[in-house]
């Protein structure tokens, strides 16, 4: 799967600051078609209305966590192949294992930098 600079990317986080940071970093990586959601529910609604090339989601959200969102995405035939990166402060091994088992394509621990984001995206889309 190659990275298409025009693919829509959905960033999900209940902290507006994190969305702004990730959006800015993605723009620097050449991606301009960026969208956002402040909760798992909002993200799921957007995903059902429009296809996204990548979802980057926080884990810690209420009431629907990023993990719940991931499971919903993987459990929906129409969305199940959407690349999904978990980006969170949850760095316990069991969380990482759970996310991997639920179908996360990658996992980034906050705080992170542009290079880490690019590196993890490269594992999904190849070098870009």
């Amino acid at each position: 799967m190659a990275a298409d600079a025009s693919m829509p990317i959905l960033v999900v986080d209940d902290y507006k600051t994190t969305i702004r940071i990730v959006h800015s970093l993605l723009r620097q990586l050449g991606f301009e078609n960026l969208d956002e959601a402040a909760s798992g529910e909002e993200a799921l609604g957007k995903l059902k209305r429009k296809p996204y090339g990548l979802v980057i989601s926080d884990w810690n959200m209420e009431p629907m966590t990023g993990y719940d969102l991931l499971r919903s995405v993987r459990g929906d035939a129409a969305l199940s192949r959407t690349p999904f990166i978990m980006i969170t402060a949850e760095s316990k091994t069991e969380n990482v294992v759970a996310a991997k088992q639920a179908g996360a394509n990658n996992y980034i621990v906050k705080p992170f930098n542009a290079e880490t984001l690019k590196q993890k995206m490269s594992t999904i889309f190849g070098e870009f």
């Binding site: 600051t17 994190t18 940071i21 970093l25 810690n60 906050k110 705080p111 930098n113």
Partner: peptide, 15 residues
Amino acid sequence: IAILEACGFHDLIGQ
């Protein structure tokens, strides 16, 4: 870019 990355502290402090 370094400033953007450093602003990630805010999320962690909030949590």
